[in-house]
Design a protein around this nucleic acid. Structure first.
Lengths: 300, 300
DNA sequence: CATAAACATGAACAGGATTAATGGTTTAGA
DNA sequence: TCTAAACCATTAATCCTGTTCATGTTTATG
C-alpha cells in the first residue's frame, strides 16, 4: 500500500522549480535516472499521471499542478519542524518568526525585540513584513509564529493578545492653525494634504473611523513609505498625517511638529499579538508574549 | 543528509495512539523489530531522543511531544491530498468538507447541498458541526474546504463570499402584546425570557447588536439545542427567541408564532462562504460556491 | 519467582532504490 | 538542413536500506 512521502513532494517541487529532471537530480544529489524511476513509481502507484512530455521537457498535468501546490505548502513546514526539533539538542536554540501587518507595529516591535534578543541569545528572530507572508494563513501554515497586527481575529484556533494601546493622532506642523482647537473634526481636513503609508485606504483609520462615517475627505492624499520622510514633510507644512501618539512624542525634538486628537474622543487602537492555539509551543515563544505584556505595563 | 519523512510522523503517531511499539507495528504492518530499528535511526539521525523508557513502555520526551503535535497536524493533510489526487483518475470524484459556524447556517446549507449532491453524484459532501473542527484553523489545516459562517474575516489568504442575506427577527407567540408595535425595542425585552441556541452570549446578535449597545437585558435566558423545541416553547408563550425571518416563515403553519423586527432598522445579517485563496482548487469546490450564489439569486 | 509483556540488538536477507550505460526524441544553432 | 547538445526513458546490474528472525534484557503481574 503506497504512501505519498515527503520525498515525492520534494521531487515535484524541484522538477517544477528547476525546469528539468536533470537539474532536479542535481539538486537532490541523485542521478537523472533515479528521478525518472521515482516519477514512474509515483505515477503508477498513485494511478495518476503528474507529468506529460512537452518537447524534451516534462510539464505538469492538472493533477501534478494540484500536487505541487500542496507540496509548496507542506515542504516549508517540514523544514520548520526539523529546525525546531534540532533546537532540542542544542539547548534553548530556536527561531521565532514574527509577521507584521501594520506600520506602527514595526516601531513598537523594535522596542520589544531588543530585550528579547538579549534575554535569549540562542534564539533567532525573523521579522517578516506583510508582503513576505500571508497573514493569518502564514500563522496556520507555520510561515510565522506570531502575527503583530491592530486587527484581531477572535476565532477558535487563534489567540489574540492585546499588548499595546495607543492613540492615533493628527500630526501637523507646529504653527498649524488647527492647534488652536482641542481636537480635529472631519471638516478640518477638507483643505489638507494627507500623508500616509502606502496601504489601501480601507485600512487607514483616518478613513474608516473618522472621515468615511461622515462622508468627509481630504484635498489630496500622498502615500509615502518612510516615517521620517513623512514627518519631514509635515514639518515643512506640506501636509498632515496620522500616527500613534507615542511615535510622535519620540520625534518631537527632531521635527517641528505637533499633534491633536481626531474627534472629541480620539481614535484609540491596540496592537495585538496573534498566535496559534498550539499544544505546547516552544517556551521562548510564550516568553516573547510575556515580555510583550510586560512592555505593556511599562508603557502607560 | 537525513530527512524527516511522513513515515516517521506515522510512527510517532501510531506509537502514541496505541500505547506500545508492538501494537503500532501491528497497525503499520511491520514487525516490532522494524519499529524499534526505525526509532533508533530517527533518533540518531536527528540527534534528539523522542522517547524514553518508562517501565516496559516508551513515553515521549518533550521533543517527542512536539514532534507528535506536528505529526497530528500534518498526517491528515497527507490523507486529504491522497484522496484528492486519486480523484483525478476516476473522473470528477472527490470530497467536499463543509464546516459550519452557526445554527441558521445549517438550515440554509441543507437547501444548497441537495441540488449539489444531485448535480455531482461522484462528490461526497461532509458537513462538520462547529465542535468537529477548529474554524479558521480547520480551513487552513485542510480539515474543511468551505466554512459557512455569519462572521467573515477579510484577510489575505482567505476569501469570504456573501451568499445569503437574512434578517434576524424577534419571534413571539402570535397573541403577544408586542405585535401591536411596528418593531421591538430593547426595553421591551426586560420582562421576557430569551430562548437561544447554546452558544456564548458574545455571539448572539441580540446581545451584540441590540441589547448591549444600550445596556439592555432580559429577565431570563435559556439555552436550547433544537430549533423545533425553541419554537414550541415560544408558541407556548414560555419565552421569545431570535431567528432568521425566512426560517420563521417556514414554521408559521406549524407553530403559533409571529415575528417583528429588532429596532426600527432591523438586524440584517449575511451568511458567507469562507474558502482558502488556493491556487486552483478542485472544480467541484468552485462549483459549490457558484451554486450557493445562484441560490442567493433565487432567495429574494 | 515464574511468566508474560514489552523493547533492544545483531546478523542475515530481500527487495526497493540507485546507478551506469545506452538509446530515443527534441531543439538550438551553425 | 544537418549536427550536436539537451533531455528523458529503459534496461540490467548493484547497492544498501529497511526488514525479519532469533535472541537478549528489562519490567510488570499473579
Amino acid at each position: 500500500m503506497f504512501m505519498l512521502e515527503r520525498s515525492d513532494l520534494m521531487l515535484i517541487d524541484a522538477i517544477d522549480r528547476l525546469g528539468t529532471v536533470t537539474k532536479a537530480a542535481d539538486e537532490l544529489y541523485l542521478s537523472q535516472s533515479a528521478i525518472s524511476h521515482a516519477i514512474k513509481r509515483l505515477e503508477t502507484t498513485m494511478g495518476v499521471k503528474f507529468w506529460k512530455k512537452s518537447g524534451r521537457n516534462l510539464v505538469l498535468t492538472p493533477a501534478g499542478k494540484r500536487l505541487l501546490t500542496h507540496a509548496r505548502r507542506l515542504l516549508p513546514q517540514f523544514e520548520h519542524i526539523e529546525q525546531e526539533i534540532s533546537g532540542f539538542k542544542s539547548g534553548v536554540q530556536g527561531k521565532l518568526r514574527i509577521g507584521m501587518e501594520c506600520y506602527p507595529c514595526f516601531q513598537w516591535l523594535l522596542k520589544i525585540v531588543a530585550p528579547f534578543l538579549k534575554a535569549y541569545p540562542q534564539v533567532d528572530v525573523d521579522v517578516l513584513k506583510e508582503f513576505q507572508f500571508a497573514g493569518l494563513a502564514g500563522l496556520f501554515n507555520y510561515d510565522i509564529d506570531i502575527l503583530v497586527t491592530p486587527d484581531p481575529v477572535f476565532r477558535p484556533g487563534l489567540e489574540f493578545i492585546p499588548v499595546f494601546a495607543y492613540e492615533q493622532v493628527l500630526v501637523v506642523n507646529s504653527q498649524h492653525a488647527l492647534l488652536q482647537k482641542p481636537f480635529a473634526e472631519p471638516r478640518d481636513l477638507l483643505q489638507e494634504t494627507l500623508l500616509s503609508y502606502p496601504i489601501e485606504d480601507s485600512r487607514l483609520d483616518i478613513y474608516t473611523q473618522f472621515l468615511l462615517p461622515v462622508g468627509g475627505s481630504v484635498r489630496k492624499h500622498k502615500k509615502i513609505e518612510n516615517t521620517e520622510i513623512i514627518l519631514q514633510m509635515v514639518a515643512a507644512n506640506r501636509g498632515v498625517t496620522v500616527l500613534p501618539r507615542w511615535l510622535i512624542e519620540e520625534h518631537r525634538e527632531q521635527f517641528d511638529i505637533s499633534a491633536l486628537p481626531l474627534g472629541n474622543t480620539g481614535i484609540h487602537k491596540q496592537i495585538y499579538l496573534g498566535v496559534r492555539e498550539d499544544s505546547d509551543p516552544p517556551k521562548f515563544q510564550r516568553d516573547f508574549v510575556s515580555l510583550a505584556l510586560e512592555g505593556k505595563l511599562l508603557q502607560p
